[in-house]
Nucleic acid binder design. Structure first.
Length: 347
DNA sequence: AACCCGTGGAG
DNA sequence: TCTCCAAGGGT
């Protein structure tokens, strides 16, 4: 009880003005929560504005094409969020008659909505008494209450959810949930937290045992693989070969055809690659130039990408999807492709 | 359970 | 340059 009173007092003085806090429209709150998954407010804010402007209501989103949604998401990353968002909008339009579900179980069942997001929507839009447990909450609770169990583990999840539920204010749930996340984002930050102005220093176990930098305990060490992609920039009769990606992390977006190789190789080795030969089989082609090597760092991959400018004399355009510069600009592309296009002023 | 998924900013 | 990681979720 002392905890939530202190927290709410801090919030009254320090809270951020954020556009999605001005509404109780579950659609708008849902959009904001999906955008903010693993994403900083400063990065997500402009996307939120664009998104709501383009799709003011759930039915606007449901009636859109997936490509439009991905185009608006371009540059934000984790593109499955955009695909799931669109899928779920259509699902709500059909299954729930366009009315956003108002109970926790139904909200949780939506694709792209997990424990955190379901609790957030339930709390912020419908004032249900559910604690949110996100990265901020885990960090704040682990430090103040000295919880050393990693949140990723099963027992860790139970500990943090139990503790969060116990601390939840029984009147101002929604504000309490906003407060603890703002507190984590502004005061109890991952690096160099502002302990000198923290209202919980006297009771904070991490602070008083000099363990601020050790909490929260995290398990996962992700493994990063290197990939070597050679994109083929084939401009034929004012059009580029440019096709839709049908699987993987960039599914639904577009890119140039590419030849992937196992390791860093030189030009002559590349031209002797089996996949290179298969791609160009009967074509008369000439390699005009190549780009620098782009290093594109993803969460699980380092992509080393080279773009090869190639002229093909006898290209059979029926075998490829070709688009004009104007069409290309309208299509959703991963950041890597966008950077290349900008660098070479293809558009 | 363990591993997968983007991008950019801070330090 | 390098590491960490941010309003997590799906498989």
């Amino acid at each position: 009880m002392v905890f939530c009173n202190t927290l709410l007092k801090w919030y009254d003085l320090n809270k951020r003005e954020l556009p999605w806090r001005k509404t109780r429209d579950p659609y708008v709150i849902w959009i904001s929560e999906i955008i903010l998954q693993q994403t900083r407010v400063s990065q997500g804010l402009p996307y939120f504005s664009k998104f709501i402007e383009s799709f003011p209501s759930l039915l606007d989103l449901a009636n859109a094409q997936e490509e439009e949604v991905l185009k608006l998401w371009q540059g934000l990353g984790y593109y499955s969020r955009a695909r799931n968002l669109h899928y779920t909008a259509k699902c709500i339009a059909e299954k729930y008659d366009g009315i956003f579900p108002s109970n926790y179980e139904d909200i949780l069942s939506l694709k792209g909505v997990g424990n955190y997001t379901a609790a957030a929507i339930s709390s912020f839009a419908f004032d249900l008494s559910l604690p949110v447990v996100d990265g901020n909450v885990v960090r704040v609770l682990s430090r103040i209450f000295g919880v050393e169990t990693p949140f990723e583990s099963f027992s860790g999840k139970k500990k943090f959810y139990d503790l969060a539920a116990k601390l939840l204010d029984n009147k101002r749930h929604s504000e309490y949930n906003q407060a603890i996340m703002d507190f984590g984002a502004l005061c109890c930050t991952p690096k160099i937290p502002k302990c000198e102005s923290c209202p919980f220093v006297s009771m904070c176990i991490a602070y008083n045992t000099n363990n601020i930098n050790k909490l929260p305990v995290k398990l996962k060490k992700i493994k990063i693989t290197n990939r070597f992609l050679n994109y083929l920039i084939i401009n034929h009769e004012e059009q580029f070969i440019f096709s839709k990606i049908n699987k993987g992390i960039w599914k639904g977006m577009y890119q140039f055809p590419y030849i992937e190789v196992e390791k860093k190789i030189n030009k002559n080795e590349l031209f002797e690659e089996e996949n290179w030969k298969i791609f160009f089989c009967d074509y008369k082609y000439k390699v005009i130039a190549s780009s620098k090597v782009y290093l594109h760092k993803l969460s699980h991959q380092n992509i080393y990408a080279t773009f090869w400018f190639i002229n093909v004399q006898n290209l059979n355009k029926k075998n490829f999807k070709c688009v004009s510069k104007q069409e290309l600009m309208q299509l959703p592309v991963p950041r890597l492709i966008e950077k290349f296009i900008n660098d070479y002023k293809l558009i």
